[in-house]
Design a protein around this nucleic acid. Structure first.
Lengths: 127, 127, 127, 127
DNA sequence: GTGGTCTAGACCACC
DNA sequence: GTGGTCTAGACCACG
């Protein structure tokens, strides 16, 4: 089951997109296997303190992307194989790295300073 | 004059925030000195393909933060000293690094793999 | 519920200010009591033929003045006591009278003619 | 010559409309006769502390309404007869009275209180 | 359905 | 030309 303990909402991006991203990252982390359940709309909305509709919207999009599968009355579950997981992981990792590099270059920060900063802050961020 | 050639819009964050971030990164890069002009609302909005009002909102917030100065009929300009620049740079660098680390940890990606990915992609991203 | 049947838009003053004025006059008239609902942004904008955003602006200002109270998803309502009502009434009455007198004096119209004109037209204006 | 000593700008209506109204009221007051000069663009803009373009806009509209007449190089002057003056006066007086009555009725203020308020404040407003 | 925000286009006043 | 404001329409999150 995907954990949402480390979900940190930010208000510059729509919540439903943040939820999608969180779930994809959980999948990339290998925390889920094919057939795993996802939290129910009700329980997740209660946990995150958001509206059930918002969670519903996230799940609906993930369903359209073929990542989760719902059937009426039953729990929703993840439908994904190892290949897809690797793909998602590579995609998210690459995007994040590119965004970081782009930001650094806009600020004229050298590769060395960027890597050193990341390295020094690494332990400070809780898992 | 601050350049917007390398401005890459993304649609998950409000445009006016992206503009603010771009300008702050330009300041952090040392591309701007005290008294420098910023592009007019109209010219920048035409360049970015957005509404002048969106640029206006960005500039208004930057003005409230004491980073730019405007007066009716005249060009707006940057009002900033070296200390503020250093502060903005440290803030942006730290925030970006923390976001990267948070994403990596959510995906259970090790420090080594993260740094290696950044390193290998560094040259691919144009300045 | 406050009525907008007798709302007459004029195009020399911003609509959002006219809406604010109309609501304050309704309060001064005693048509509204503490806890009364105000029309929703959408319904009022449809009724007046303006954009919901324009109504939103009016309500936002009234909220800053402590006259109405809003919370997401719920209906907005009036928060006002008898003292505030008397204050608003006195303010609006005084302002209106002063503006009338100022206009009369600019046109060199005597007090007698002004009062006589008001008196003779009084019945012609529908409530 | 029309006086602008008692011109009191308010920021809820465009300045060029306020200037037009002021001139019309001056005409209604009988302060001008046919052929009278109006202040030059430059002098009036300096007096009111506004931009010459704004005064120009007011004069242009008055010209289209046939109230003032300009010819290149010469001073602009009022072209109006006694009949027109009476018409303008009646119009402005009626409009002002109607607006006052409408406001009073919206606030459920009686004719007696309205007249009494006007009467009591009359001397307080400077000519 | 509700309130709140973001983006868009037109207009006003100024240099 | 410049900055500033008002109105418009679409979208997000909530009850």
């Amino acid at each position: 089951m995907i954990s949402f303990d480390d979900f940190i909402p930010n208000d510059t991006s729509p919540i439903y997109l943040q939820i999608i991203l969180h779930i994809k990252r959980g999948i990339a982390a290998g925390n889920v296997v094919d057939g795993d359940e996802v939290p129910s709309r009700r329980s997740l909305s209660a946990l995150l303190g958001v509206n059930p509709n918002t969670v519903q919207k996230s799940y609906h999009i993930l369903e359209e992307e073929g990542i989760i599968f719902s059937s009426p009355g039953a729990k929703s579950c993840v439908t994904i194989d190892q290949q897809k997981i690797a793909l998602i992981r590579a995609q998210l990792l690459g995007d994040q790295a590119k965004e970081m590099i782009h930001a650094m270059k806009q600020m004229r920060i050298s590769k060395e300073e960027a890597l050193a900063t990341l390295s020094s802050l690494w332990e400070d961020i809780p898992s």
